[in-house]
Amino acid sequence: MKSLEELRKLRAELEKELAARNSEGKPKIIIGMGTCGIAAGAREILQAVLQELEKRNLDVITTQTGCIGMCEQEPLLDVELPGKERITYGKVTPKDVERIIVEHVVNGNVVEDLAIARLEEGGI
């Protein structure tokens, strides 16, 4: 270690490895993982999300929820940006994932043609 600068740079890199342990103030992607969701392909969606996040090096929390009673719309994917309402996307395909992440998570614009519901901030 030759300087404080070098250490700070290293920290910025390493911080990402611990990102999952701190969800405060970060965008969240929530995937419906009830039995129905998994049958409809939710695992593939989750994997597509993870790949996309890794590819773009994004600090986003990925979590899951059980069946929320909209089984016919599965797979479901919700996006919640800090301080914004939670948007639910239905019948998501792995192809949609990139669009949702780029347009909504990165640029903050809801993908209207895929969105099926809105929830006030903090709702589950």
Partner: peptide
């Protein structure tokens, strides 16, 4: 309970050794 004590990387990731760097260089 929050970091892996056998990983210096995790300690650095939570700001470890910055105080040391600050003291020694500034």
């Amino acid at each position: 309970g929050r970091i892996n004590p056998e990983s210096i990387k995790e300690y650095i990731a939570v700001g470890g050794y910055e105080a040391c760097g600050k003291a020694l260089t500034e």
